[in-house]
Simulated assay, not measured.
Amino acid sequence: MRTVQACTIAGSDSGGGAGIQADIKTFQEREVFGTSVIVAITAQNTKGVNGIYPIPMQGVQEQLEAVFADFDLGAVKTGMLVDETYMIAVANFLKKYPLIPLVVDPVMIAKGGASLMAAEAMKEMKETLVPLATLITPNLPEAEELVEHTIMSEDDMVVAAYEIQKMGSCNVLIKGGHGANQREAKDYLLTDDGTGYWLAGPRYETKHTHGTGCTYSACITAELAKGKSVLEAVRTGKAFIDAAIKDELKIGHGQGPTNHWAFGRKERANDEKN
């Protein structure tokens, strides 16, 4: 039986809750073999980001060439890409692999508020990376940066999704976790055929949400690598991150990480009941 394989192109998180570490953990939980291309090393923990150290461009290029030359990748995701130079280099490389589904998580700001992407990179994000995306997964602040206006309501989320789709992404998932709705975290998925779907989940009283975006998009990437449709992958991703937030680990002294094994444990418990 073929082992499903995926790749994450992003930054490393020394605290283990986001970035490359969160992606690999999530791939593993979804029974997908994870590979990685590290674009930057960060010195961070649950209390914040203390430093960002980009990998030399040659090192990034050689990682890309090594991974793509050897592994049978079912899907790829990008996360933090630092600045426009790295974004262009990664986009130009990925253009050679148009048949591999690409999930773009436009990581811009860490949970603690630190900027993870240079301001000049936004133009390149729109022009070089978004058009390659099978799916782009911005949260509300990231979507506002992409469309250059505020998003205050569910109607605004729908409008923004169409605007982002016009930039070239086949499918758009706007995550509503930062929204004003106090009862539900509602996400909006606009698929390539113009159909819209709302995915709602309960909100939880917790500060342990570090790496939610990375984890959510990594789960989607893993499901796409298995051959699932975008809608199926997003639904699984929503259930995965819901469990990861609900079953908190209470790690660290700041905004702690989510629980990457919670969903799998829940699935195994259900299997045992049946």
Rank of each mutant, 00 (worst) to 15 (best):
L173G: 06
G179P: 00
G196P: 00
V234P: 00
V234L: 03
V234T: 09
K207M: 05
R183T: 09
E248M: 01
E248Y: 01
D187Q: 07
E184G: 00
D242Y: 15
H260P: 00
E267R: 15
I174D: 13
L173P: 01
G213W: 08
E232R: 01
Y188P: 00
T258I: 14
L224G: 01
N181Q: 11
I220F: 10
I174L: 14
W261K: 09
G211I: 02
Q182H: 15
L199C: 04
C219F: 07
I241L: 11
V172R: 11
A243Y: 14
G176A: 05
G201S: 11
T221N: 03
T215I: 05
A200Y: 11
E232I: 00
A243K: 15
T221V: 03
K226D: 03
G177A: 07
H260Y: 04
T212G: 07
A243P: 00
A180G: 04
K228F: 13
Y204R: 04
G264W: 11
T191L: 08
D187K: 06
C214D: 12
T191E: 10
P202L: 04
E232N: 01
T191C: 07
A269Q: 12
R265M: 10
E205T: 02
K175D: 08
G213Q: 08
D247C: 11
T191G: 01
V234G: 03
A185K: 07
K266M: 14
G213I: 03
Q255W: 13
T258Q: 05
A233M: 11
A243V: 02
L189M: 12
N259E: 01
G254W: 13
K246T: 06
T221D: 04
A269L: 11
A269F: 10
V230S: 05
H253Y: 13
G179A: 15
H178Y: 10
L173C: 07
G176S: 03
R183Y: 13
G196F: 11
P257E: 04
D193R: 12
K175M: 09
F263K: 06
T212M: 10
E267I: 13
T195V: 08
F263A: 03
G237W: 12
R265C: 08
